[in-house]
């Protein structure tokens, strides 16, 4: 494929840039002086052993935690200190490592919540079923079905999210995040718990997202998936970056091998 937005040696301005991010939990540095750039249209993987600080890094990027130090610049704007919902509205969406769907709501309702900040109807208009609110409602339903179709979940639209098999719950998390219409999507171990077939489906969906112009950051332990789809890989260990480069460079990096061997011996 010939996508112009594919990173080609720094010609593009970074969509997202983290600068010296640090976060400590009671003396333990979960993320230490982490800086990186993500270019528009790329797929960047973040890997590292358990407890390396990957999820914490996501929490810093999405405003769930405030960093002790450092800043996050998204589309030229410093977003540290903004509330999570404001960051989502700017165009950063995420999924959760431990699934956090709204289990008692239907599949389509889950996705419709993702469209929340694209719609306006407040308490009064909703209670009185104002025409504008009804139009929004119809639009949300249509749009959600379209997004469910991308994730291959349209047949499940009216089932409770909590009743889906595990793999489909993961996909629904992606669909729901997609509904916020992000510029950049942060996936936290989306393939964990998926079987081989579901994992390759997920890979297809991520490709399709990139074609739709969504930039993707992927935290993942499934090395097959990471090496197959990412343009760039960043390796964290004990909260610090130990390597960064193309999948091929990373595969041969002795520090990476050591970090992974070290963790496997545990």
């Amino acid at each position: 494929m010939s996508r112009e937005s594919r990173p080609d040696g720094g010609a593009n301005v970074a969509l997202l840039e983290a600068m010296s991010l640090t976060k400590t939990f009671g003396g333990l540095a979960a993320v230490k002086d982490v800086s990186f750039k993500v270019e528009s249209g790329s797929i960047k993987a973040i890997i590292g052993p358990n407890g390396a600080g990957k999820t914490t890094l996501y929490d810093l990027l999405t405003g769930i935690y405030l960093p002790d130090e450092g800043s996050v610049v998204f589309q030229g704007r410093d977003i540290v200190g903004l509330a999570t919902h404001e960051i989502t509205a700017l165009g950063i969406a995420r999924t959760f490592q431990t699934i956090r769907l709204f289990p008692e709501m239907t599949v389509i309702e889950n996705v419709m919540v993702g469209l929340h900040h694209h719609t306006r109807a407040g308490f009064v208009k909703s209670a009185f079923r104002a025409p504008s609110a009804m139009r929004e409602e119809a639009w949300m339903r249509e749009e959600s079905l379209r997004i469910l179709d991308i994730a291959g979940l349209e047949m499940q639209a009216d089932n409770l999210a909590g009743s889906l098999p595990f793999g489909q719950q993961r996909l629904l998390e992606v669909a729901r995040a997609l509904a916020t219409k992000p510029r950049i999507l942060l996936l936290d171990e989306p393939a964990s718990g998926l079987n081989a077939y579901e994992t390759s489906e997920l890979g297809e969906i991520i490709y399709r997202l990139r074609d739709m112009g969504v930039t993707v950051i992927l935290v993942e332990h499934d090395m097959g998936l990471v090496m197959r789809i990412s343009h760039e890989v960043l390796v964290l260990d004990y909260g610090e970056i130990i390597a960064e480069g193309t999948p091929d460079e990373i595969k041969g990096d002795p520090r990476v091998i050591e970090a992974y061997l070290g963790s496997e011996l545990d």
Partner: peptide, 30 residues
């Protein structure tokens, strides 16, 4: 009015934050 409300965008956001505040925030709900 209340039953209209709970079946709307606002009602969904209420139920969403009931089930997971973090996820509701991350979906853009204040």
């Amino acid at each position: 009015l209340c039953s209209n409300l709970v079946r709307s965008r606002v009602g969904r956001s209420m139920r969403a934050l009931h089930q997971s505040e973090v996820a509701a925030e991350a979906m853009g709900v204040n």
